[in-house]
Nucleic acid binder design. Sequence first.
DNA 1: CGAGGAATTGAGATACATCAACTTGCGTGG
DNA 2: CCACGCAAGTTGATGTATCTCAATTCCTCG
Lengths: 235, 235
Amino acid sequence: MTTHPRISDCLHCAMRDRSIFAGLSLDDLRDLGMEVHDISVPATDMLYLEGDRARYAYTLREGAVKLVKTLANGRAQIVRLLHHGDLFGFEGLRETAYQHSAIALTRTDLCRLDLVALEALSRRLPSVHDAINQRWFNALQQAETRIVELGAKNADERLATFLSQWCSAYPAGDAVPFPLTRQELGEFLGLSTEHVSRLMAEFKRRGLLTERKNLLHIPDTRQLILHACASGACA
Amino acid sequence: MTTHPRISDCLHCAMRDRSIFAGLSLDDLRDLGMEVHDISVPATDMLYLEGDRARYAYTLREGAVKLVKTLANGRAQIVRLLHHGDLFGFEGLRETAYQHSAIALTRTDLCRLDLVALEALSRRLPSVHDAINQRWFNALQQAETRIVELGAKNADERLATFLSQWCSAYPAGDAVPFPLTRQELGEFLGLSTEHVSRLMAEFKRRGLLTERKNLLHIPDTRQLILHACASGACA
DNA sequence: CGAGGAATTGAGATACATCAACTTGCGTGG
DNA sequence: CCACGCAAGTTGATGTATCTCAATTCCTCG
């Protein structure tokens, strides 16, 4: 699963100031008392499976990961999508088992943090503790937003809102990496892959977006929202 | 809004060992350095409105409260339902504004905690800090479960799962208080009130549940789940 | 160049929403 | 205590959004 795990050098990490170790002194960083493994996995690789005993949390440095819950009958729901800078697997600090399966959407680089050591570290360094809590809080807010999306919006609205938020991480008007398949879009938005496909085609027909390879281009997200959310559901 | 707020006596509170102050010594409890107001509101009363500047968190002692988000076009989504022992409004520890509206479903008794004082207290007493974090974590887990419900299950499954979970707080086989209207059920489950009504009628016809006044009786939750979730979605 | 998964497209079925009429329950005021 | 009135609930008819199943095309990669 992991290709050549190495001990990471946190001092010179590009993610340093966006990670849970942001704000630590150089001394603290040098003396973390914990090995941070640098790992890298190809697309479709599973980092862990829902129900597995939780041993590690991960910081995503490059790439994208989905967190999936699967029902008894096989239906899958993508609970969260993770990007550059996100921390995940940290439910292991409170539960013995992972609550989702984590699967790479692209080739992905991560830092792997031992949960026991992280627990100790977080007890020792308040800024780490706070950083983790802040991530929890953010995850909660995001989750509640998703509840509203899924419970109160129709398909066009869900898709349009999602796409424009996906792009919001990049400079406006640029083409952005878009590694999700139609099926994954469906599993995230609670729709069938066919319906997603039709909606995407419809958006393209109206000139609201274009796609090529794994690049998505939305000339004007405001237009997209406006056209897809005629009812005014998306503000 | 508040009827006769009084300074609460935390020492003799019935909720003491289920609240965020559980585990505090008697000395700590006596010296909280914070006024806890005892308030009581009738059904349908709004405790705060989404977007309001957040001043207080609340512990629910008796009754039930809904947390609602409202879309620009007026559609409402109930994000969370709160019961005996639940803490809410604590997003005010990280955000300046409340992220939902809080509305009482029944006559409700609460403890009102000043957020600034709570923040200070949580910094001073690790067990309070931990207790609050634990609530965040629980809320996150619950929210993710709701995402799966809304994204991957159909109407029967959602309703059946919800009803049996609602009852799980009470001894099996008992009739339980059920203060939700059909509309509120719909706003929680992402369904129209008419559809909820039809499904309830169907469940009754099949003998899976009975209702009278504001009491719900489910003889056997396993049966309910079994019949409503033929596909095996609900384990 | 060929093969296999992903995407698209169409036709048909269905789950759910919408709209409208009607009933039931219940508090209120005469 | 009854009658009224309103809100909640029910029920039916109809519309529509979305799913399902199946066939076809498009990519991508070996």
